[in-house]
């Protein structure tokens, strides 16, 4: 299935309906309250950033969305269907893909195989049929490969397609992680600190890819990020978390002048357009 067909099969949502809706989610680990009554929504064609100091609950939020953690209260809906309590692979199949803060790629597999792993989530061949590669398995493999190549092309990974991911540099590995997430045909993409540890050039590349994913493929993005210049430039809306609660939300220009946010996170000396 090529990109255009994928777009055509996207669920038709009412323009006002959010793709992802988080309603009053609370997550506790024993006595520690990681998230309390967090609500946020992401609309079609939106890039939403989640920022906040360390320990504010940003990654806990992403993990709850992706099904790693199961919040005790509240509800999370994707296109109106609750995904709370679903296993991670089911949430992935429902259309939520994410990249990781650390690197979680299969380092022994090649770049293209990593992307093909993501592509295979919806394949139909059975185990018994895949026993006979030339009779049954190869056609499906070629189809997965073609789809993976499309993504590798998009992310400019063609030249390293056969290299084991473990031999690649950090920036490229993060890009493979992104490619693997895109291979799931996501209807919404969560990216956890995509810019962490990248140099300036790699940040620019990645920012370009994120913008392209959003503009060309119309995939809404939720981004957790500490690099304020990236956040302020890319995000349509920003949610600020602090101690597990939503401290503020709004457009970048509003967040930059919000006194609570400046006190809690940005710091008094923060000025718009200056990297922190």
């Amino acid at each position: 299935m090529n990109r255009q067909e994928t777009l055509a099969t996207l669920p038709q949502v009412h323009p006002g309906t959010p793709v992802l809706d988080v309603k009053g989610v609370s997550l506790r680990f024993g006595g520690v309250s990681a998230l309390s009554d967090v609500s946020l929504h992401v609309g079609q064609d939106e890039l939403v950033a989640v920022i906040g100091p360390n320990g504010a609950g940003k990654t806990s939020l992403l993990n709850s969305l992706a099904g790693f953690y199961h919040p005790q209260d509240g509800d999370i809906t994707l296109f109106g269907n609750s995904i709370l309590g679903m296993a991670p692979h089911r949430i992935a199949k429902a259309g939520m893909a994410r990249t990781f803060q650390g690197i979680h790629v299969l380092s022994t597999l090649s770049v293209i195989e990593n992307i093909m792993l993501g592509c295979g989530f919806n394949a139909h061949g059975t185990l018994a049929r895949s026993f006979f590669y030339h009779l049954f398995g190869s056609r499906e493999e070629v189809a997965l490969r073609a789809k993976a190549e499309e993504i590798a092309d998009f992310l400019d990974l063609g030249l390293v397609r056969h290299q084991p991911v473990g031999t690649l540099g950090y920036g490229l590995r993060k890009r493979v992680d992104l490619g693997r997430a895109l291979a799931l045909d996501p209807k919404i993409l969560l990216v956890d600190e995509p810019m962490a540890g990248m140099n300036g050039e790699e940040k620019e590349d990645l920012a370009r890819f994120l913008v392209d994913i959003r503009e060309l493929w119309k995939i809404p993005i939720v981004m957790v990020e500490h690099d304020m210049s990236v956040v302020m430039d890319l995000a349509d809306r920003i949610y600020v978390l602090n101690f597990g609660q939503v401290l503020a939300s709004g457009r970048p220009a509003e967040i930059q002048v919000n006194q609570d946010v400046i006190n809690a996170y940005l710091g008094g000396s923060y000025k718009a357009g200056v990297a922190t």
Binding site: A66, G67, F68, A87, P88, H89, I91, A92, K93, A97, R98, F100, H104, V105, L106, S107, T108, L109, E113, M116, L117, G118, G120, F121, N122, A123, G125, L127, S130, Y133, G137, E140, E141, L144, R180, L184
Partner: peptide, 22 residues
């Protein structure tokens, strides 16, 4: 094939494999 990659995903990234659609 696909099943082989899924096996490797479970071996190398037990917890993250789910989010890869495995």
């Amino acid at each position: 094939g696909r099943y082989g990659r899924e096996l490797i995903a479970v071996r190398d990234e037990d917890t993250a494999a789910g989010i890869m659609g495995v």
